[in-house]
Design a protein around this nucleic acid. Structure first.
Lengths: 194, 194
DNA sequence: AGTAAATGTTAATCTAGATTAACTTTATTT
DNA sequence: AAATAAAGTTAATCTAGATTAACATTTACT
């Protein structure tokens, strides 16, 4: 089990002692998933918050018309979960599926509460992570209302050039809230402009 | 200073002792704003997270074309702030303006860090508040991608019937990401259907 | 290598919602 | 009670992006 990327990541936010790192390491679990497998399925109760060690996942939901909408991608050093389901222990709105073979560190809902008490610094750490996620989510709402599809795509390409490379274009279109045909049109338009 | 609504609100999440309530009360500040006044202005660094005791605010930003986009409304027992600016102490993206005379309890960025240390239960409290806000924000993204303007309006009307009553319609249109003319059309369409 | 499946492109047509503009109704101020 | 401003409505026209469908290219599988 390779937990070092998580420890490094935590180090950027709070300083854990070796003893605290040992407690953390003993409580979390490690798991490998294959490409195509589901970490969470819509309707299940989500039991884990997961830190991605390697690989890539998509978080999406299927609407009443059967349309798939991708809400986020997660790659190395990102988190993935249906946090709404996790914190309330109610059925998940989202599916989390692996787009590549993926290694995760998993925090179960039971042990995370213990960890908050044993290592209060971790409660601070998660508070900060969630604050950042909230800010990012609010900014995404702004973008969805104030930018055209083309500008949202350019923003995405600029912010996550690595992700654009490893994910099929029709999934990026879904993430941007447009059809794959229209993204194709946008891309050919961008090429013509250069 | 009427802090009781905040203490009641906190009670729903964590149990504070009388001593802890006294510490909290001594550290937060209380302020009244008049209708039209700004709690935060785009470009300023946001110094406070605010709990609304009475009144109503809108949080909005102005895009490059000068268009106003309302991100949220806050009424009694809600929070208001530019949380991105608050946590990073960088210039705010948003304006927060009072739509009515408004009474607030304000947590400054300095004292909130002290409070987390003095009363760790408050760090838990804020973590949970922020988790909920994140979930709400993610669900709003889903709705913006998967629902038509009409369905977003019906959802809003159903979730926040009190807010619909006290806010001008053109602001609700802005919150929904549509023009006031189109909201007007939607409403007359809904009336015809009944 | 050859076939099937997955992914991406192009173009014609259609529609939800924007824009513009003129008008009506409701609040506010004097 | 007028006058003025703010808020809401209606209708005509326009456009960003959806839908449909046929085709092209890339990737994976036997």
């Amino acid at each position: 089990m390779n937990i070092q990327p998580l420890l490094n990541y935590i180090k950027n936010h709070v300083a854990l002692t070796e003893a605290e790192e040992a407690i953390l390491t003993s409580k979390v679990s490690y798991r490998k998933y294959l490409k195509g497998q589901f970490i969470v399925q819509q309707g299940d109760v989500c039991k884990y918050e997961c830190f991605v060690i390697s690989g890539c996942t998509k978080t999406y939901f299927v609407d009443d018309e059967g349309q798939e909408h991708i809400v986020m991608f997660s790659v190395e050093d990102w988190w993935t979960s249906d946090i709404g389901s996790f914190i309330t222990q109610t059925p998940a709105d989202f599916n989390v599926q692996c787009l590549e073979n993926t290694e995760l560190i998993m925090f179960s809902s039971d042990i995370i509460e213990d960890l908050y008490i044993e290592i209060p610094k971790l409660e601070r750490f998660f508070r900060r992570i969630i604050e950042r996620a909230l800010v990012a989510s609010q900014k995404r709402i702004i973008r969805s209302f104030s930018l055209s599809a083309k500008d949202r795509f350019l923003y995405f390409r600029n912010q996550y050039p690595q992700i654009e490379q490893r994910i099929p274009q029709y999934m990026i279109a879904s993430y941007l809230g447009i059809t794959k045909e229209f993204l194709s049109k946008i891309k050919s338009q961008i090429i013509l402009e250069q």
